[in-house]
Simulated scan of single mutants.
Amino acid sequence: MFAAVLALAAETPVEQLSVTEVARRADVHRSTFYEHASTPDGLLRAALLAELDGLRADLLHDPGRGTDAAVVETTRRVLEHVLRHLPVYRRGLADDAGAGGLHAMLGEHFLGSSRQLLEQGRLSLPTDVPGADPDVVADAALRLIALGTVGVIRSWIDLPDPDAAAFTAIYGRLVPDWWSQLDR
């Protein structure tokens, strides 16, 4: 079903897809569809997250890989993922798509990855803000990176021919100095 919804969403805005259409393309009954998702949009997000979660599992759980190397490699693979599904992300992250949907999904995924790095002690954040709870500052820092990364991806995919070098140039210039760096 994931392959079916990804293929259909590459051709048609997901909000225009019906459960029947996705089930037919996947060669399953509608009841099977509903065992996995309630809407085509929900199935699309699950399909994209399954790929992103696979990247995170492969790269961030390797204790032998340094944090910077994990961030760089994960970023490269996420960019490849976005490019594989470029029509889906262009529609799903468009300004008129609203703040939910793919924007929220990516933000939560990146936030989860950053939290895992922090929990593993592989990330240190600037939490020494006078008068502020360090946990609140750490959460704000992680959200800044996660949601800012989605914003950079959103702008990057508007390029006529987005590639990893263009993303790296933009992101490397904008990301705060305390964050793990891509080559600048």
Rank of each mutant, 00 (worst) to 15 (best):
E35C: 06
S31Y: 08
A94Q: 10
G92E: 01
P40G: 08
A140S: 12
G121D: 12
W178H: 13
R90V: 08
A69Y: 06
L8A: 14
D163Q: 11
D139M: 04
S180I: 02
G172S: 06
T149K: 12
V72R: 13
P63G: 06
L52K: 03
I153C: 02
F33D: 02
A132F: 04
A141L: 09
L52S: 12
H61N: 15
R24K: 10
R30P: 13
L55D: 03
I153F: 09
L144V: 03
L48M: 13
A141Y: 00
L6G: 09
S38L: 12
P13G: 04
L144A: 14
W156D: 04
D62R: 01
V72Q: 13
A70S: 11
A46H: 01
I145G: 01
A104V: 08
I170P: 03
L93Q: 04
R90S: 09
A97S: 12
L182V: 15
V14H: 05
A10S: 15
E73W: 03
H36V: 01
D96W: 08
V14C: 11
G98Y: 03
L147P: 00
D133H: 12
A26E: 04
L6D: 06
L142H: 06
A97M: 02
A9S: 15
T67M: 09
L44V: 07
V88P: 05
T149M: 07
V150M: 06
A70T: 05
Q181D: 12
S38K: 14
E21Q: 15
L8K: 00
G100Y: 11
A46C: 04
L60T: 05
I170W: 03
S18H: 06
E21V: 09
A57H: 09
G64C: 04
L55Y: 08
W179V: 06
D163M: 08
L44S: 06
V5R: 02
H29S: 14
V175R: 14
V5N: 03
T75F: 00
D183P: 13
D62S: 06
G107I: 03
G172Y: 03
R77I: 00
A37E: 11
R56Y: 01
R25T: 11
A37Q: 05
S124A: 15
D27G: 08
V137I: 15
